Each structure stands twice: as C-alpha cells, then as structure tokens.
Simulated assay, not measured.
Amino acid sequence: MKIPNQLSFIILLFFFCFSFQSCESKGKEKIGNIFGTKKETEKLKNVDIFDKNTQTIHVLVALCDNKYQGIVPVPEKIENGQDPDQNLYWGAGYGVRTYFKKSKDWKFLKSEKKDSIRMERLIFQHTSKKNYYLVADAYDGEYIKNCTKDFFYSSSGQMKDVLSVNSTKIGLYGNAKLLSYIGHDGLMDFQLSESFKNRDGQTRDCIILACYSKKFFSPLLQETKANPLVWTSHLMAPEAYILHDALTGYINHETGEQIRSRAALAYSKYQKCSVKAAKNILVTGW
C-alpha cells in the first residue's frame, strides 16, 4: 500500500527525533565563558588587517555531547564532546573534519590545537578558486553556549580576527564572508541576553545547520543583519555534506535558492528521503 506523502513526511520527522542528535531539551547544558563574566563585548577581538582579496568561510562546530546538551542521547562512542576524533559532528564519517578532508574540492592545509574550549582548528583552501579558504573550529560540547555566542558576535561584526596561512593573512569571525554554525540548537535550552547588534554595517552570509534554526536563531540573527542562505524549519541531522554542497553553489555565486537546492539534494541523497521532504527541512532567506 502506498503511504501518502504527508504521512511519509510525519514518519520521517519522527525518525529524526529519535535517531539523530536532535533537539529534545534535557536542561543539562553547562555553560563556560571564554570571554569572562563582565562586560563581555569589551573583550572581543576586533582585528581586521588581512588580505582583502581572500574570501574566508568560518565554520563553528559545537561538538555533540550527551552530558552537556539537551539532545536525544546518541551512541556513547560518538557523543563525547571532549573527544573530537570520534565525535559525530567532527571525526565521524559525516563530520566536518572527515568529510572535508576527503573532498576533492578542498585542500587540507593544516590543523591547530587551540585551547580547552576550541579543541581543534582546521584550515582548507579551495582547489580551483584559491582565494577561498575554509576554517573550521571544533568547540568542546560543554561550551555550546560559547560557540553560539561566537557565531552571533561574528555575524554582527563585533568579533574579528585574522589568521596567517603561509604568507597570507586571512580574515576570521566577522572578517569572514560566510559564517556557519553546526550542531545542536542550544537556543532551545538556554537564552542569550547579550546584544548582537550589527556594528559595522556589513551584511554577512550564514548557514545554520541545527534543528529548527530558523525559529530559534531568527530573533538574534535579525540584530546582526546577516543573510541566512540555508537554515532549517524542522528536526534534522546537521552533517557535513549539506554544508559542503551548499558551498559549491556559494563559491560559484549562485542565488540563495540555488544554494538551498544543492543542500537539499545532498540531504535527500544521504538521508534517503525525497527532495521535497529535504526542501521542507532546509530553507533559505527570511
């Protein structure tokens, strides 16, 4: 018997809820503070001297963590937010580190150990459009709130930094042309009281791969004046192939709708769902 499309979509969402590291709040997140406890915005880096011919994509990944995040528990091997090598969003097969290292479109340049909060940084360069760099930071899963705040501070231009890659200085955080957040939607568990008002008048593109990210990120993202190229309207699995294929369209200067379509096609392929269902999950614009 053929199952109606609407029923199939409901079943698909139910499957996501119990199979993936999704968004059922357990109220267990433990918050650290990388910038201190008072007048936080005054301590943000704001360095913007870099090669303006370069285009940086800065990806902030909150590692999956059963203990400190309000998620439906995932297998122990891939849920340790203090172990990037095995983590679902980083070292696992469809994690950012593993997937992009295998990509023919991106050349892996180097890895850096940062600190106890940002556990690892990866730097890639596009193989054909060599002025494009991708920098990905793995945040300890305990510090998902820091990762979320850094994303908003970067999107608003309040937080800026640079990185030397060989003899070239590239922009990070608010100096990046595109910001991406990947991980659990922590805004379902906690609220942010900081101001993320745009500081420099620039509009930055962003991709937010987390459950219901359009609903929960919208109020603060509006303050930043960022342009959401891809974000989500339902439960979903924030795996690296979505970002990878969306970036192909971005680097080719495609429209938001074309970029979203690439992301949805990748999601449909790997999640074995219809393209229509994938497009219902991955959306673009306001």
Rank of each mutant, 00 (worst) to 15 (best):
M1N: 09
K2N: 06
P4A: 02
P4R: 10
Q6M: 02
L12M: 14
F20E: 15
F20P: 02
Q21D: 15
S22Y: 08
S22R: 08
E24I: 11
E24P: 04
K28Y: 09
K30D: 13
K30Y: 12
G32M: 06
G32C: 07
G36K: 07
G36Q: 13
G36F: 08
T41K: 08
E42C: 02
L44T: 01
K45E: 14
N46P: 00
N46I: 08
V47K: 10
F50T: 10
F50I: 08
I57C: 03
V59Q: 08
L60M: 14
L60I: 15
A62V: 11
N66L: 01
K67M: 14
G70W: 04
I71E: 12
V74R: 00
E76M: 04
N80M: 07
Q82S: 15
D83H: 12
Q86K: 15
L88C: 05
L88M: 10
Y89F: 15
Y89V: 07
W90V: 03
G95P: 09
F100E: 02
S103F: 00
K104N: 10
K104I: 01
D105C: 02
D105Y: 06
W106R: 00
K107D: 08
K107I: 03
F108W: 13
F108I: 05
S111C: 05
K113L: 13
D115E: 07
S116V: 09
I117W: 07
E120V: 13
Q125F: 01
T127F: 01
T127K: 05
K130P: 00
Y132T: 02
A136S: 10
A136T: 03
D137W: 07
D137G: 10
G141E: 13
Y143E: 11
C147H: 01
T148G: 08
K149V: 02
G157N: 09
Q158F: 03
Q158C: 03
D161W: 05
N166G: 04
N166R: 14
K169F: 06
K169G: 00
G171L: 03
L172W: 04
N175I: 00
N175V: 01
A176V: 01
A176D: 02
A176P: 00
L178D: 10
H184A: 09
D185K: 01
L187A: 09
M188G: 12
S195P: 07
F196D: 04
K197L: 14
K197H: 09
Q202A: 11
T203A: 06
C206H: 02
I208W: 06
A210T: 06
K214M: 04
F216K: 11
S218T: 11
L220M: 14
A226P: 03
A226D: 07
V230P: 00
S233P: 11
S233A: 15
S233V: 04
M236N: 11
M236W: 06
A237F: 11
A237R: 11
P238C: 02
L243F: 05
D245Y: 07
A246V: 01
T248C: 03
T248A: 04
N252M: 11
N252C: 06
E257T: 14
E257F: 09
S261L: 12
S268T: 02
K272C: 03
K276R: 14
A277I: 06
A278H: 10
K279N: 15
K279E: 12
I281L: 01
L282F: 07
